[in-house]
């Protein structure tokens, strides 16, 4: 009997299972608090928001997996920047979508490259490097916009994000599923993926086994920038116009989603599937908090506390030791 219990406990302690159980519990709780919370349409809306967060968290995820206190605090800045670039490039015209995608990916990749170069060549700790980059990006946003909202989403982009594309499910959710599959393939089935885990678990041993440690770390930061850029583009489609610092609120949740999904902040351990569950969970939590009239500052407090609680729960405090 006790064996069954202990097996059940170890099953439930797997981060992804724990996240799924919590998702169901939170949906039930939401339904109790506000009937209709767990309806099909509402769940789809939650998933759209979750996919925005999840795409950002994909970049955060690979940077964290790469180890050496890897973290990207600049994702929020890149999201905002990308939304503004996209809005101005397409300016409400469908023909502008492809140039906008190219411009956003280039910008995200560029700032990711700067992060990567700072962390590898200048040996600046990722926490400091990406925080500094966030500051630069925020300043840049003010300069570009001068406080005036600008840029319109193309109608096709808005439809892609908000309207059903196939089987009643919006394009952005399909995109997120595709990213999930590609991430799983990359991490488990490519040499690049194996090398990410290798540098995350034991950077020196990886170096001695011929892994190009710096190149890979730079690539991870570039990936993170590009994922954030894609999310920024989609966010523009979601809201129609870009407005002040749309991306700012995503930095903390993107980290929490990764940790919730069972990826170790020390690097080298975890995967993206758990992160996806973590993103869904966070969005539901956020929605419940909104339902019971807790404002943005209250939500931030709850998120911060959640991250700290998670760190204790998974015993990963050592991960953040400098």
């Amino acid at each position: 009997m006790s064996q069954v219990v202990s097996r059940f406990l170890s099953f439930i302690r797997q981060p992804i299972i724990a996240a799924l159980v919590l998702i169901v519990l939170l949906l039930y709780l939401g339904q109790m608090l506000s009937p209709g919370f767990a309806s099909g349409g509402q769940i789809l809306r939650l998933l759209i928001v979750a996919s925005l967060l999840g795409i950002i968290a994909a970049g955060q995820n690979v940077v964290i997996l790469g180890g050496r206190e890897g973290i990207d605090l600049s994702v929020g800045g890149v999201v905002s920047l990308s939304a503004i670039i996209a809005g101005n490039v397409m300016n409400g015209a469908d023909s502008g979508i492809l140039p906008a995608i190219a411009a956003c990916l280039a910008a995200g990749g560029f700032f990711g490259l700067l992060n990567g170069l700072g962390v590898t060549l200048l040996r600046i700790p990722p926490l400091v490097m990406t925080l500094g980059m966030l500051g630069v990006l925020q300043g840049l946003l003010v300069v570009i916009r001068m406080g005036i909202p600008s840029g319109q989403a193309a109608p096709a982009l808005s439809r892609f994000v908000t309207q059903p594309l196939a089987f009643g499910i919006p394009g952005i959710i399909w995109l997120w599923i595709a990213i999930g599959v590609l991430m799983a393939l990359m991490l488990n089935r490519t040499v690049f993926g194996h090398r990410i885990y290798a540098i995350g678990s034991n950077e020196h041993a990886a170096y001695m086994a011929g892994v190009p440690v710096r190149l890979i770390r730079i690539a991870l930061f570039m990936l993170s920038g590009m994922f954030a850029a894609i999310a920024g583009l989609c966010l523009l489609g979601y809201s129609g116009t870009s407005f002040a610092n749309v991306g700012e609120q995503y930095m903390l949740p993107s980290i929490i989603a990764v940790v919730f999904g069972g990826t170790s902040l020390a690097g080298g351990k975890g995967g993206y599937t758990g992160t996806m569950a973590g993103a869904v969970l966070l969005v539901i939590l956020q929605s419940i908090l909104t339902t019971i009239n807790i404002d943005e500052s209250g939500r931030q407090m709850v998120f911060g506390a959640t991250l700290l609680l998670l760190m204790m729960f998974y015993g990963r405090g050592r991960a953040m030791r400098a």
Binding site: S201, H204, A209, G268
Partner: peptide, 8 residues
């Protein structure tokens, strides 16, 4: 230090 990619 130099060899084992631990946890993999």
């Amino acid at each position: 230090r130099d060899g084992v990619i631990s946890g993999r």
